[in-house]
């Protein structure tokens, strides 16, 4: 008989095993994740002495008062949420047909290749891709050159360029969950719908869409939150456009007003939490 006391003891104590399994991630979550969030929440109540530039460690709601009363921040918030919604809608409209094609039209042997192709851009540097879009949107770039024969000017740098670039960057995050959702949908369901007299359109709206709805929601959480938190794309292709994330970045960097940046950062956090709450209430994540 082998004698291994530690393993035997662990085998008999289920709770100890679970504790061992979770020790590291819990430590990480508590200290690094929740800890930094708490620090941010507290520092949003501090302020900066405008004369010395030092942080004043006394609690006040001045930052929030500024955010709520100065109209420009409201405009920026709405604009940012608008961009995140637009990116999510564009990615949804692009990802559903792509995912449908991969999982239901393509032969199985080609599927993994095409999925790999969808993932390839994620291996390229995010900055390189964004600068590539910058050169395409620039004056005399590919986009304005291609639109010229039709007498249309390219959008140039601004909100449109930001939205298009973000939609490009986050598209794989929408395709993957929808593909996974469609992959679990048996083809016989589509055949059954057709067999019962439904056209392709009816099958799409009454069978496919309701079944992949949780997958679309999962994808939208990615595209929405990634767009809302992005400050680099808007810096590179956004021209003078102000979004919540780059206002936060400017307050951290240029202005050195960390407390105000922290207060501002609560807006995307609250928005995402609100979105998750609505999604949860709709029951979309129950079977995911």
């Amino acid at each position: 008989m082998r004698n291994n006391r530690i393993n035997t003891w662990l085998y008999r104590h289920k709770g100890a095993r679970a504790a061992l399994l979770l020790a590291l991630p819990v430590l990480w979550l508590a200290v690094a994740y929740l800890g930094s969030l708490a620090v941010m929440l507290i520092s949003s109540l501090w302020s900066v002495d405008s004369f010395t530039g030092n942080t004043v460690h006394s609690f006040s709601f001045t930052n929030f008062h500024t955010l709520l009363t100065q109209k420009v921040y409201g405009t920026i918030a709405i604009r940012s949420i608008g961009v995140a919604v637009a990116v999510t809608v564009i990615d949804g409209l692009l990802a559903i047909p792509i995912a449908l094609f991969i999982s239901k039209v393509l032969k199985p042997k080609f599927r993994s290749v095409v999925i790999a192709l969808v993932l390839v851009p994620l291996w390229a540097s995010y900055l390189v891709k964004t600068y590539a879009w910058r050169s395409m949107f620039s004056d005399g770039g590919v986009i304005s050159w291609a639109l010229k024969p039709f007498g249309i000017h390219g959008p140039g740098f601004g909100l449109t360029a930001t939205t298009i670039t973000l939609a490009y960057l986050w598209l794989p995050y929408m395709i993957l969950p929808i593909y996974a959702g469609l992959d679990r949908l048996p083809n016989t369901l589509l055949e059954a719908s057709s067999d019962l007299g439904a056209s392709a359109r009816t099958t799409f709206t009454s069978i496919i869409l309701p079944i992949i709805y949780p997958a679309i929601i999962a994808g939208s959480i990615f595209t929405f939150s990634l767009s809302l938190g992005d400050y680099i794309v808007v810096k590179i292709v956004g021209g003078t456009t102000q979004l919540v994330a780059n206002v936060i970045a400017d307050n951290v960097g240029t202005a050195g007003n960390l407390p105000f940046a922290a207060a501002m950062a609560l807006l995307p956090i609250a928005t995402i939490l609100g979105y998750l709450f609505v999604v949860r209430r709709s029951g979309a994540l129950e079977n995911f």
């Binding site: 048996p186 016989t188 369901l189 055949e191 059954a192 719908s193 057709s194 067999d195 007299g197 079944i211």
Partner: peptide, 19 residues
């Protein structure tokens, strides 16, 4: 196409709509 044929099918895996 199947949706214009006057036949109906009972599938091996039943293919009931889960939602």
């Amino acid at each position: 196409p199947p949706f214009n044929r006057d036949v109906n099918t009972v599938f091996q895996d039943y293919a009931l709509f889960p939602h």
